[in-house]
Amino acid sequence: MFKCKNLLGLQDLSAEEITFLLDTAIPMKDIISRPIKKVPTLRGKTVVNLFYENSTRTRSSFELAAKYLSADSVNISSSSSSVAKGESLYDTARTIQSLGADVIILRHPMAGSPRLLARTVDAAVINAGDGAHEHPSQALLDLFTVRERLGRLAGLKVVIVGDVLHSRVARSDIWGFTRMGAEVVVCGPPTLIPPGIDRMGVRVFHRLEEALPGADVIIMLRIQKERQQQGLFPSLREYAVLYGLNRRRLALARSGALVLHPGPMNRGVEISADIADGTSSVIEEQVTNGVAVRMALLYLLAGGGDRHENDY
């Protein structure tokens, strides 16, 4: 059973709660594949997307999830609102609350801001990415995609490759996959692996050839070109040579291994084009599953009141 009011991070969730969420996403995925992609479940509920950072897929995914469940959704982005005039997160949150929001989906560059928001408002809060901290709905859709394809999560070897230092997806994936009993390995240049990450229960490799053997799942992280200017790696070309996933490297993993990427991809840098479009890639499926998982989240969080006698 799922009793949380908010979804701030996967660190807070038990294996039972994660399983319940993933199970709820299965019927939601059916709805997306129907000719009429709409159910009346959240009619009259209001979902506010509050985005302090740019996002296309996460925001549109949450927006569509809300619409498929018949909720009304509003998008507020920092560039085109009072936020640009210097309004604080606290005051913006109070305003949104007064507008009658039932669920607030927050993306913010500061780690921990969703927790601050959750303490401020009565509405349910979903973290859509906070700094380099967590991006729980992305990790849930990764878990859903892997469980659907491979039939299980426990006992799998999951390799996360790339800029783990700046990646909230990596952190949420690590919490999620380890909680579900998978073995997680991270791999990247030493400058992009945070010291002490092994305390999250993962093994660290700096050579892809050592990390990949026996892998069931490979999660490639997006490499941001700005990191080169910060001196964290010498050049994109060198990064691609050392850490890019190509056919030769994929052959080191278990046969039937899945390749995931949270998007947007840099083809030819962290992933070669033939792998991105190949049979191991489930990158497009991740996008569809993202809507299903977010529908499940909205359904489970947009409730209220006490259980009454069931008249059905």
Binding site: D23, I26, P27, A296, L300, G303, G305, R307, D311
Partner: peptide
């Protein structure tokens, strides 16, 4: 048919009932 998502009393039920597949 699973009718959970079509119920008219969802907002008064908490926790929400388990949704199963149609």
């Amino acid at each position: 048919l699973d009718i959970t998502l079509y119920r008219d009393d969802l907002s008064s039920l908490h926790p929400h009932p388990v949704v199963r597949q149609t």
